[in-house]
C-alpha cells in the first residue's frame, strides 16, 4: 500500500462569516505523528472539522489534497471512505442505533457492496479491539454514545479508529476527560495503529498525552495558523512556560483571543 499523504495548503475557514482558520499549512504522511497545540479558541477544532467536511464550516481559501485528490471537493462520507478519520472533540449521541450496528455499517460502507465483512470476522475483530481498549462488552449493544461518560465517548472514538483503520486520523482532544489509566489505554490503541500506512494529527492541550504517543513534530497554532513547529521538546517547553513566552518571542499580540473571551 502506498504511503498516504494529507497536504493542507494555506487553508482559510470561516464560521458564520467569521474567519477562524487563517492560512494553515501542513503536510502529514503515513508513518508520521504530528501534534498541534494551541490556546483555546485558536481554531484547532475548526481546522479538524473543516477537513472532515462539517456542514457549518465554510472554506474560504486554500487547498487540501488527500493522496493527490482534492479533499475539499469530496462529500463527508467520501472523505471517510478515502481513508480520513476524525476523532471528534464532542461526538454525537445517536439513539436507538447500537454501537455494533453502526460499526458494521461503517466498515461495510468502506468495503463496498458485495464485499461485506463476514459477521463472525466482525465480531472477532470487535471483541479484540474492545479488549485492547478495556471497553466492557455491553458497550457493543449500547446505543451509540448515548449516556456515555466523557471518557467512554473518547474511548469509543478510538474503538472506531481501530475498527475502521483509516489512512490518516485527526484526534481532537482525545485526552480530555480521560483519567490517567484511560489515557494510557487510548495511547496504546493509537500506538497499535502506527505503521507506514497510517498518519496521525493529534490535537491536544497537554504534553502528557505526548509522553505516551511520541510525536515526530509538534506545531503551535495561534490565531488560526501555525506559528511555530519543532520536535517533542516544543511541547515540553509549552508545558513548562505556557504560551506567553512563545507569544513574546514571536511578537504575537493576543488581543484577538481577549476579544473572543470577552
Amino acid at each position: 500500500m502506498a504511503q498516504p499523504t494529507l497536504k493542507i495548503e494555506d487553508l482559510h475557514v470561516s464560521i458564520e462569516g467569521k474567519e477562524i482558520v487563517k492560512g494553515f499549512s501542513l503536510e502529514i504522511k503515513g508513518g508520521e505523528i504530528h501534534a498541534v497545540m494551541g490556546p483555546n479558541g485558536t481554531g484547532k477544532s475548526t481546522l479538524a472539522s473543516a477537513l472532515m467536511g462539517h456542514p457549518k464550516y465554510e472554506i474560504t481559501g486554500g487547498k487540501v489534497t488527500f493522496d493527490g485528490q482534492d479533499l475539499l471537493e469530496m462529500e463527508v462520507d467520501e472523505r471517510a471512505r478515502a481513508g480520513l478519520f476524525l476523532a471528534m472533540q464532542y461526538p454525537s449521541e445517536i439513539s436507538g442505533v447500537t454501537n455494533a450496528d453502526f460499526l458494521r455499517t461503517a466498515i461495510n460502507a468502506r468495503r463496498g457492496e458485495g464485499n461485506e465483512i463476514p459477521v463472525m470476522q466482525f465480531i472477532k475483530k470487535l471483541d479484540e479491539k474492545m479488549k485492547l481498549l478495556d471497553i466492557d462488552e455491553e458497550f457493543a449493544n449500547r446505543y451509540l454514545n448515548e449516556g456515555f461518560s466523557g471518557g467512554e465517548k473518547k474511548r469509543n472514538e478510538i474503538l472506531q479508529l481501530m475498527m475502521l483503520e483509516p489512512k490518516i486520523a485527526i484526534l481532537d482532544e482525545i485526552d480530555s476527560g480521560l483519567d490517567i489509566d484511560a489515557l494510557k489505554i487510548v495511547a496504546k490503541g493509537v500506538n497499535a495503529m502506527r505503521s507506514p500506512e497510517f498518519g496521525c494529527l493529534i490535537i491536544t492541550h497537554y504534553q502528557r498525552l505526548l509522553n505516551y504517543i511520541k510525536p515526530d513534530k509538534v506545531h503551535v497554532m495561534m490565531q488560526g495558523r501555525i506559528v511555530k513547529s519543532g520536535g517533542p521538546e516544543l511541547a515540553e517547553r509549552l508545558e513548562a512556560e505556557g504560551y506567553d513566552g512563545l507569544k513574546k518571542e514571536l511578537g504575537i499580540e493576543d488581543d484577538e483571543v481577549v476579544e473572543q473571551e470577552a
Binding site: M52, S95, V97, A109
Partner: peptide
C-alpha cells in the same frame, strides 16, 4: 455528519437514524 464521517452514505445514515428512532 457524525455518521457520514465514518464513511456511511447520507442515505444509509438517514436509514440508521430512522431505525434508531423507531427502535424503542
Amino acid at each position: 455528519y457524525y455518521l457520514m464521517s465514518r464513511g456511511i452514505s447520507r442515505k444509509d445514515a438517514e436509514r440508521l437514524i430512522v431505525h434508531g428512532f423507531l427502535n424503542p
